[in-house]
Design a protein around this nucleic acid. Sequence first.
DNA 1: CGATATATTGACAGGAGTCAAAGAGGGTGG
DNA 2: CCACCCTCTTTGACTCCTGTCAATATATCG
Lengths: 238, 238
Amino acid sequence: MPIEMMIRKLRQHSDLSNEDVEALRSIVAPARNFPEDSPIFREGDLSTRCCVILSGFAYRSKVSEEGKRQILSFHIAGDMPDLHGLPLKRMDHDLMTLSKVELGFIDHDALERILDAHPVLARALWRESLIDAALFRQWIVNLGTRSASGRLAYLVAELRQRLGVMGLVANDQFKFPITQSKLADALGLSVVHINRILQAFRTQGILDIKRQVVTLGDFEKIVQLGGFDSLEDYTSPE
Amino acid sequence: MPIEMMIRKLRQHSDLSNEDVEALRSIVAPARNFPEDSPIFREGDLSTRCCVILSGFAYRSKVSEEGKRQILSFHIAGDMPDLHGLPLKRMDHDLMTLSKVELGFIDHDALERILDAHPVLARALWRESLIDAALFRQWIVNLGTRSASGRLAYLVAELRQRLGVMGLVANDQFKFPITQSKLADALGLSVVHINRILQAFRTQGILDIKRQVVTLGDFEKIVQLGGFDSLEDYTSPE
DNA sequence: CGATATATTGACAGGAGTCAAAGAGGGTGG
DNA sequence: CCACCCTCTTTGACTCCTGTCAATATATCG
């Protein structure tokens, strides 16, 4: 029942009744598999359904006019990376898989009907989409104020936090199938420089990213370097 | 009736009935004035009402753990910069005035009641808050992929676009009371460097920012330098 | 086992930051 | 009305973080 991860996430900030949850569960289409490094949707697409990541990793990205790719966010099991497509329809960025991904789909029309009858659920989804926006704000701070190594540390701290909540961190390790080139595109840095920072982190025993796995050597240090500030306190109502 | 600007903005993407609009209008409290360079709310505050900018300029900012201020966005007449506070309550950043600002306030409780009775309006506000998020994504691309001069050009292009819609651009000029130090904090650059870019733009006749006024010398060039891509096509449903 | 993607190195260039000081501008009070 | 002050802008000299280019090593996969 991997859809439970999404429900757990919604329940972290919203008080959903069992009816709300059942209604939502009833309209999730059977899981579909996507291969790694492939698009789920593209910028400009019209969205007719929302997806829920049941397992695997994805990222959202945008290509600037100059042709450079910027990765906007990473997504993990439990996330609904295109919830904003429900009110906005037209996608302003790509959604790509990082690994093999299992997706559940929720048809917009069906969802609209459920939301009309379940205002608490509607509010929960609005909230969820705004938490997404809050992460973007954090990301802006990260890009705008921190050095290269700070940015990387911040990313790792954020991922650890989010994966931890989903129970996907064990023994100071978590799966995260990233390449240095994608890290570069996420952090606004060059591949070469990412490589050098990674090496420095490795020799200092701070962290290691190898073979799809991130190993945290010194999490305290990572949080400090990245100036990581958990959003927890801001994402629950009242 | 400067509240009309907000309504015009909502109507750009949502089909509001006159009833919807009247309901909304009925709960806007009389305008209040805020002096320049002062806080409207602070990070950590609990939000009990939404504000609408009736006139003037404001910005949202966040201070990183390291103590550096990052400006997240600028706001103009017609904007509701804390709409996300309705579902999320706890503010994750500051809202500051740039100039004298006239604000209308909408009490959350009253708004909730109206939204329950006007689902189209509720949807419009959700949409509005997601357009805000889309601007943040654009901003991430700006910070992550562009050079210093590109970033500045992008900011000016975005402002021109948004102010233009509100009818606040005339003769290739618009009011925008910014200091170089704030520009630096918005673009993730140092004041000194901002100053040099500004001078380069000035001597090349591209643009000038002086005494609270931005003068566009060569808008084509600005759009090109900034790789500006209007969001227009993404913000209307279907 | 070859082929392709990814990671690593080295040398060098350059954009952007820092520090410190000097000008300008705008507001205020005597 | 002018002197003074405070903030904002401008300059110069210097540093250094990060990017670029190009080559090599290492993984990964069919």
